[in-house]
Nucleic acid binder design. Structure first.
Length: 276
DNA sequence: CTCAGTGTTCAGTG
DNA sequence: TCACTGAACACTGA
């Protein structure tokens, strides 16, 4: 699920159900990997009885602001995410919905928060690469303090971006995936941005011309804002985006032949005819 | 059974 | 010390 647009959608959901409410019950899986060596009692002690004052995001990290520290911080890894109970359906149409999709709490629930008004927020994670941590100053402590600029909210100027890229010999795709460079860029967004900026993902970061850096910046801003606006609902992305064909087609929607290779440790799709 | 996967971290290397 | 690379992590689903 999670690239920055998905995480921002989770932020909006959490804001709606949690802000202004008090946590009246906490269920916590005994999973010292996802909880980063914490045990359930420590988690419960920090959260139970607290009021939620806000929800914050930086890059792909989220945290809840409570009326007392420490605060819970969430990272979704590859398969984590927030869930809320589905709206009370009119008629529960028999077996189909029961087995899949609508079970509550969801399979792989790691943390379940119940609020004073009866609302709930669950963090689940099948693959267990996500993390839940407690921090007294989330933005000031690792891992969030180690992030680079937020790719949605604080894009540097082209000039600054050129400076940041100057020392980078890794492929530009790998640089974009580096969260200490541009926080929030994930695999498909890196490919999308490079496709739209017409830059070969294998190019060393430092080899980009000023014009290319400007295009990169503009397309990063455009892809992020568009994807966030769409609420991470990919059906609403413009039809010509690489996104729609990058996993399973030989050509882009515009008819350009696609090539795939591992770059920066990830499967990368690009259109050599238009990306140099 | 095998393999890839929307992400990060760590060890080893230059 | 820094930057880079690739393996490891843990599990699902095709």
């Amino acid at each position: 699920m999670p690239e920055l647009p998905d995480v921002d959608a989770a932020r909006v959901i959490a804001r709606r159900v949690a802000v202004g409410r008090r946590i009246v019950a906490v269920e916590c899986a005994d999973d010292s990997i996802v909880f980063d060596r914490m045990r359930p009692p420590e988690v419960r002690r920090a959260l139970l009885g607290r009021r939620v004052l806000g929800v914050h995001r930086r890059g792909k990290h989220l945290w809840l602001e409570l009326d007392r520290r420490p605060w819970p911080c969430f990272h979704f890894g590859m398969t984590g995410g927030f869930h809320i109970p589905s709206a009370p359906g009119r008629k529960l149409r028999s077996s189909r919905l029961k087995s899949r999709g609508r079970e509550w709490p969801p399979r792989f629930t790691k943390l379940r928060l119940v609020f004073g008004d009866g609302g709930e927020l669950v963090m689940s994670d099948a693959r267990r690469l996500g993390r839940i941590r407690l921090r007294h100053d989330p933005a000031g402590e690792p891992p969030i303090s180690l992030l680079g600029f937020d790719s949605l909210l604080e894009l540097p100027s082209s000039r600054e971006l050129r400076r940041l890229l100057a020392g980078r010999s890794a492929p530009i795709k790998a640089v974009l995936l580096d969260q200490s460079f541009s926080a929030g860029v994930g695999n498909w967004i890196a490919d999308e941005v490079l496709y739209q900026a017409r830059i070969d993902p294998r190019r060393p970061g430092r080899s980009l011309s000023p014009a290319e850096v400007s295009r990169l910046r503009a397309r990063l801003k455009y892809v992020m804002t568009t994807a966030v606006k769409a609420g991470a609902e990919s059906r609403r992305f413009p039809p010509w985006w690489l996104f729609h064909t990058r996993w399973d087609q030989d050509v882009s929607a515009r008819g350009e032949k696609l090539r795939r290779a591992t770059i920066g440790g990830r499967t990368t799709a690009w259109a050599p005819a238009v990306q140099q």
